[in-house]
Amino acid sequence: MAMADRWLRWRLVHGGESASKRPIRFDGAPASSTDPATWTGLSTAEQSTAGDGLGFALGGGFACIDLDHCYDARGYLADWAKMLLAPVAGRTWIEISPSGQGLHIWGRCQERKGIKVRGLMDAEAYSQGRYMTYTGHAWRDSPVKLADLTFIFDVIERLAVYDCPS
């Protein structure tokens, strides 16, 4: 399996008052973000009608930073999101998330522990053991290439120390 054969599908699952995006295989069977046997190539995943969309298993140098609810009440990008985007905007693939209220910053990073910050900002950064939904809806004029995200991971990790509980 080639390095980029890390594609899968996802299905929106409602449980109580929340919903989650569960990874599934192209044939609709359960998938895992850590089991390469459940992943496939992009063309197979794109041709599948299973579930609600495409996903990508992170790791092997591939990373993603998820900025949730990063727009203010006027629809402008929040200052914390501008700060995280500034070092890589125009240098890496950034897409609009499935909700339309967030952004995914795709890039490269060595595998490291995932980071989640809530309160100060609404950001998560992963480079292993997780999958990320993929929309293909470019944010602004994002290039189809992947930049090194190590610096942004470091910034988010430092800010997580100051995070306020929600």
Rank of each mutant, 00 (worst) to 15 (best):
M3Q: 14
M3K: 13
A4E: 12
A4V: 14
A4C: 11
D5Y: 10
D5G: 06
D5S: 13
D5N: 13
D5C: 02
R6Q: 02
W7M: 08
W7G: 01
W7I: 04
L8A: 07
R9L: 01
W10V: 04
R11I: 13
L12C: 08
L12Y: 01
V13T: 10
V13C: 00
V13N: 02
V13S: 03
H14A: 14
H14W: 10
G15L: 10
G15V: 04
G15F: 10
G15A: 14
G16P: 02
G16W: 11
E17S: 13
E17V: 06
E17K: 15
S18H: 14
S18C: 06
A19P: 01
S20W: 14
S20E: 10
S20I: 12
R22P: 00
R22Y: 13
P23K: 10
P23M: 14
I24G: 03
I24M: 07
I24P: 01
I24T: 05
R25W: 02
R25L: 03
F26Q: 08
F26D: 05
F26S: 09
F26I: 02
D27R: 04
D27Y: 05
G28T: 00
G28V: 01
A29Y: 04
A29V: 00
P30K: 01
A31Q: 08
A31V: 01
S32L: 08
S32G: 10
S32V: 11
S33L: 02
S33T: 12
S33P: 07
T34W: 09
T34H: 11
D35G: 02
D35M: 09
P36S: 14
P36H: 14
A37T: 13
A37M: 04
T38Q: 05
W39H: 12
W39S: 07
W39T: 06
T40W: 00
T40C: 11
G41E: 13
G41L: 08
G41C: 14
L42K: 15
L42H: 12
S43D: 15
S43H: 15
S43N: 14
S43T: 14
T44F: 07
T44P: 00
T44D: 06
T44Y: 08
T44R: 15
A45N: 05
A45W: 10
E46H: 07
E46C: 10
E46A: 12
E46G: 02
Q47S: 13
Q47F: 07
Q47K: 15
S48D: 05
S48F: 09
S48C: 05
S48N: 04
S48L: 07
T49E: 09
T49M: 05
A50R: 05
G51F: 07
G51D: 07
D52T: 06
D52S: 00
G53R: 00
L54Q: 05
L54E: 04
L54W: 06
L54F: 03
L54T: 08
L54A: 06
G55C: 02
G55A: 12
F56N: 01
F56A: 00
F56R: 03
A57W: 11
A57G: 12
A57K: 09
A57C: 10
L58P: 12
L58G: 06
L58R: 01
L58C: 10
L58M: 08
G60V: 09
G60W: 11
G60A: 08
G60D: 13
G60T: 12
G61C: 10
G61M: 09
F62Y: 15
F62T: 03
F62H: 13
A63L: 04
A63F: 03
